[in-house]
Design a protein around this nucleic acid. Structure first.
Length: 285
DNA sequence: GCCGTTTAGTTTCCGGTGGT
DNA sequence: ACCACCGGAAACTAAACGGC
């Protein structure tokens, strides 16, 4: 069993059920959920609340290309025909508990950085192109200075570097730069500047990518478009406004639908496995 | 009054900066 | 060359605000 941080929120309970079914149980009934929630809060949960949880999961089931669970009238059942990789659990834990960094065997595991790395592969899958992890702190083996990184990107993309922001800037809101190159390698191509928000405050970050500034650093032959990655499922009532602010949205539904075949990076899979194991033991009750 | 959104304040991390 | 300090970035929290 794993703890529920916010038993009043139907989305949090829906996230919890996704984790519960992917690790701890083959199925759970509405009555079992109800008595478990009652044990936490003392109050009996209303039928209205339980059915809002059910509706949320029904909606998610219809949007996952390969739904990891099946919702019926009184019971939710794990879909044993579907096994997702560790990236699924990573998104769920980030969505439910937020970001929580700590050291694992002497190595700092940054949750936001792990999410950024897995988002890179989802974006690559979407675009059918390549990606560059631009976010701060720079990956090991990457130049930390922002000017060097921007120059590196413009060289790889064959776009024209003009000037860099002041050296105090870290990533100017951009965590991933993805592009779809042409075979002959000239400039003028589809480029996406993406931002990742792994934490619960993602709503505050949809407007923080200064696209105008980015068109001054690099004179793109064709201007880039924006994208935004979150580990949660973005609710319908926020979808359009968030899109208008942040560009193409990638929430857990889309990330999982894109990473159908898993992540083609052994080191990242290993890091995610280490991180999720640690997180689960921390939240187990 | 309740609920969700917005804003400001705080914490932590980690390079760059500039003084010794 | 070293080191204290500065400031961007990510995240969380609490307080303020406004609609139902």
């Amino acid at each position: 069993m794993i703890e529920i941080p916010d038993a009043q929120s139907h989305r949090a309970v829906a996230d919890w059920l996704e984790i519960h079914l992917s690790i701890f149980a083959a199925s759970i009934s509405k009555a079992e959920l109800s008595s478990y929630l009652e044990g936490l809060s003392g109050d009996e949960s209303t039928e209205a609340f339980l059915s809002s949880v059910w509706n949320e999961l029904l909606s998610r089931q219809s949007q996952y290309m390969r739904p990891p669970f099946i919702v019926s009238e009184r019971r939710i059942i794990k879909n044993t025909a579907v096994t997702y990789g560790v990236e699924y659990l990573t998104c769920l834990i980030l969505s439910l508990y937020g970001v929580n960094d700590h050291d694992i065997s002497g190595r700092r595991m940054r949750s936001a950085k792990l999410f950024e790395r897995l988002s890179g592969f989802a974006l690559q899958e979407y675009l059918g192109g390549r990606f560059f992890l631009f976010g701060w702190p720079a990956l090991d083996g990457t130049e930390p200075a922002i000017q060097a990184r921007i120059q590196q990107v413009s060289t790889e993309l064959n776009e024209r570097f003009v000037e860099a922001p002041a050296a105090t800037y870290k990533d100017r809101g951009v965590d991933i730069i993805a592009w779809k190159p042409f075979a002959e390698g000239r400039s003028c191509q589809c480029v996406i500047l993406a931002q990742c928000a792994a934490g619960k405050d993602w709503r505050n970050k949809t407007t923080t990518l200064p696209m105008d500034a980015w068109t001054k650093y690099i004179h793109w032959a064709s201007n880039p478009i924006k994208a935004f990655f979150v580990p949660c499922v973005i609710p319908d009532n926020l979808w359009l406004e968030a899109s208008w602010e942040a560009g193409i949205l990638f929430d857990r539904i889309r990330i999982m639908n894109l990473l159908n075949g898993g992540i083609p990076d052994e080191q990242l899979n290993q890091d995610l496995l280490t991180w999720t194991t640690e997180q689960l033991s921390e939240h187990e009750v």
